[in-house]
């Protein structure tokens, strides 16, 4: 039975996990994304679609303060995560550990598969082997990778194939037990069958966490997202229920055009 995207969105109107007000992101003074206002609700899958250079990845970077790593990247406006302003909070590491991120290209860290997934729990101070075993197995199961690697957890994570590494990256993000999971075009390096398996996992994960799904695949947003935002050339054109947007109910003609593949 398929959960209709629209339904869930209506049910969880109450808790807003992320609020963004007048967000402007610039690189060396040149705006890359401006005037974004949106709320992300607890336990929804929030899709972000849009062509290249729309500002999607910059948006994710600003949320977990990865702008600190990028010289010349400036962030104005307000982003509140769990009610706290991410620009001014005092412990950015605590913020990041509550947000899992999966980048477009897989990053298998140069350590064993087991250690890759056990890294975040260990950073949190979990040392007991049996506890780690449970976490590692559960996260790899959820990332649809357990069956393929359960007999070789001691081999290097960086030696896995691209698609496997991406699932390893997802398992690692899940091992943080994040409040918010951000996926940036995760399916670029993954085959369609595995993509579908991960998509099923994401639907289940919605019970436990909020997910921001940046995707190039319009239909992926349609399949998964409760609500979808359309970013275009550095601005957020519109945010709406996915069901509405994908059935011709978009406010802005450009959104409809993009969804129906007339440009981009």
């Amino acid at each position: 039975m398929v959960v209709q995207p629209g339904q869930a969105a209506e049910e969880s109107v109450s808790g807003q996990i992320l609020t963004v007000k007048d967000l402007t992101i610039s690189y060396g003074g040149v705006p890359a994304l401006s005037g974004v206002n949106l709320d992300i609700r607890e336990n929804e899958i929030f899709g972000i679609i849009g062509p290249a250079n729309a500002g999607k990845t910059s948006f994710l970077k600003a949320i977990n303060r990865m702008d600190m790593f990028t010289a010349g990247m400036g962030v104005q406006g307000e982003i509140r995560f769990c009610g706290q302003d991410v620009q001014t909070l005092k412990n950015v590491y605590a913020l990041r550990s509550a947000i899992g991120v999966v980048f477009p290209l897989p990053v298998g860290l140069p350590m064993t598969i087991y250690d890759n997934v056990a890294l975040a729990p260990r950073l949190r101070g979990i040392k007991a082997r049996q506890d780690l075993d449970v976490i590692v197995e559960r996260c790899l199961e959820r990332a649809a990778l357990w069956d393929e690697v359960k007999d070789r957890l001691d081999s290097l994570g960086s030696l896995l194939s691209g698609g496997q590494q991406q699932r390893l990256t997802i398992a690692r993000a899940l091992s943080q037990e994040p409040t918010l999971l951000m996926l940036d075009e995760f399916s670029i390096a993954v085959d369609p069958v595995t993509t579908m398996r991960i998509e099923d996992v994401l639907k289940e994960l919605r019970q436990e966490m909020t997910i921001i799904l940046v995707t190039n695949l319009v239909q992926q947003a349609n399949r998964l997202a409760d609500r979808t935002a359309f970013f275009l050339q550095g601005s957020c054109v519109e945010v709406g229920d996915t069901a509405t947007l994908f059935t011709g109910g978009a406010q802005d003609q450009r959104t409809t055009d993009y969804i129906e593949g007339r440009f981009g």
């Binding site: 808790g15 996990i17 607890e42 336990n43 995560f81 769990c82 009610g83 706290q84 991410v86 909070l89 005092k90 412990n91 950015v92 605590a94 913020l95 509550a98 409040t179």
Partner: peptide
């Protein structure tokens, strides 16, 4: 959820 319990200022 544990939204209320998380304190990023600590």
């Amino acid at each position: 959820s544990d939204i209320a319990t998380q304190d990023f200022d600590r």
